[in-house]
Each structure stands twice: as C-alpha cells, then as structure tokens.
C-alpha cells in the first residue's frame, strides 16, 4: 500500500494547479523512490515530468509499484479543500479503486478526508535522453513569467537566442515586434535574483508562447527557473522543489 504524508499541502496543490491545463488525465506512478508523473499534452507538443522524492514525505511507505490514474480537475477540486499549510496524507491500496486524501490543519483541530475515484489510464511512457545542453540559463521565475506574458501579447512565437553576451527573447507580430535581453548578473544580497548563463555554444530556437505562458503557472513553486537549450532539441524548463522537480519539455518550431 501507499502512505505518504506531505508537510504542506500547498506543494501538491501548486503542482496540480500548474499542469492541469496541459494535462487532463495522468498516472501518478508510486514506488519506493517516491511519486512520479510523466504526461504529454493533448497535441503532443509538450511533455510534463514531475518527481516528488520519498525524502520529501514523512512518513513515506510504498510496498510495491502503484499507478494512480487521476483526473487532474477532480484532484484539484479536492485539493482546493486543503489549506496551504495543512498536512496532507495520501493513501491507496495495492490495487486501488480510489485515492484517499487526509488534510490536517497545523493546529490539529480539523481533519478533512476525501476519496477520489481512480481510472485506468493507458499511457505511453517516453524515454528522455540525458542531454548536455549547449546553454543553461537560470533566472528568477517571476522574470521569466513576465517576459513570456509580455511577449505573448504581441506574438504566438518567441525566439530564444543565447550567446556569450546574454540571452535574447524576441518576437514579432501584426502590431510590431519586441524583445527582452538578459545579461548575466549576480545579486549578492539574494542569489535567487541572479541571472546565470552557462554556454558551450550559441543557440537560437523558436517556441510557442502559449505553452511557455502555461509552464509559468509553476512559478510559485520556486523562486528560480532553469532553461536548458540545445539547437534542434526540445527546451527544458525546470522548477526545483524541495525533494523533487517539475519539468516541462517543449518541442521547437521550425522553418519560416
């Protein structure tokens, strides 16, 4: 059986909130290492990969591999009933029909219990190769969100060009064009506000802004976001969580 307690319900709330518009139904794969999820969006342009390691739970127990097939909208309806600071315990049998969720207020004076029905989901699992990316950019997640939001007002697509001088996000649309260039800098008072660019070769790729704006819903999970790019391969957008990560892969656009 699975029994996993999170110190703060908000971690799972934020994960589900961030991905529920990309993915409707998916399996939460539970094993002794933790809980993982991998799913493509309906149009097969983006891939979501999430891991909450067992060390992020206390206690964590999972005797055998269990796939929890969940409708994310249903899960979100239940998770909205949890306060951010509530303790959240997930429980399921070895061959479960439902997932049990227990919310305990931090003052322990309220217990809420919900069961949601599970579904059989036949999901294709994709192998993601280890990639040495040509450019890795770490920047404040709020900054990335703002860039995507601002440029999406002008265009459907953004080109991301990284070279030794910095990283340039540029777009052009019917009303005109725009760009934002970030240069590496270190904020000595707050490391999370720094922009770091590691580059082995220049890259220039074009992506759909609609998806990037969607990924940015994960911004509340982490103060920083990591963008990994190589020419001709999907962009990796990664938000680190305490004991895991939420990763989005986005296929590039090609041609003009």
């Amino acid at each position: 059986m699975l029994e996993a307690r999170l110190e703060q319900a908000q971690i799972l709330k934020k994960v589900v909130e961030a991905i529920k518009d990309l993915v409707q139904d998916c399996n939460f794969d539970c094993n002794d290492a933790g809980i993982q999820l991998q799913a493509m969006d309906n149009s097969h342009v983006a891939l979501v990969s999430m891991k909450l390691g067992s060390e992020g739970f206390s206690p964590y127990r999972c005797d055998r591999n269990i796939a929890l097939g969940i409708n994310l909208n249903s899960l979100m309806k239940v998770l909205r009933a949890a306060a951010n600071e509530d303790l959240l315990t997930l429980k399921a049998e070895d061959q479960p029909d439902s997932l049990n969720l227990l919310f305990e207020s931090s003052s322990q004076d309220r217990l809420s219990e919900y069961d949601i029905k599970l579904m059989d989901i036949d999901q294709e699992h994709l192998g993601i190769p280890d990639t040495e990316y040509a450019a890795t950019i770490t920047l404040p997640s709020a900054e990335f969100q703002r860039i995507c939001r601002d440029l999406s007002a002008l265009s459907e697509s953004v080109s991301i060009e990284a070279n030794k001088d910095g990283v340039k996000f540029a777009c052009s649309g019917d009303i005109g064009n725009g760009s934002v260039t970030l240069r590496p800098h270190t904020n000595v008072e707050d490391e999370d506000k720094s922009t770091k660019i590691e580059l082995t070769e220049p890259v220039n790729l074009t992506f759909s802004l609609k998806y990037l704006v969607n990924f940015c819903k994960a911004s509340s999970l982490s103060a920083t976001v990591r963008l990994c790019l190589s020419n001709e391969v999907p962009l990796l957008v990664e938000y680190q969580m305490g004991a895991g990560y939420l990763r989005f892969y986005l296929a590039p656009k090609i041609g003009d």
């Binding site: 493509m40 097969h44 342009v45 983006a46 891939l47 294709e124 699992h125 994709l126 192998g127 993601i128 190769p129 697509s157 074009t206 759909s208 391969v233 999907p234 892969y249 986005l250 296929a251 590039p252 656009k253 090609i254 041609g255 003009d256």
Partner: peptide, 14 residues
Amino acid sequence: MSSQRSISSFFTPV
C-alpha cells in the same frame, strides 16, 4: 510560417 514539431519525434516510447 513556422511549423510546430511534435515532442514524440524527439523522445521515443520505452
């Protein structure tokens, strides 16, 4: 116009 690639053309099923 640019065309959107599919993610499954980069990552193969396991």
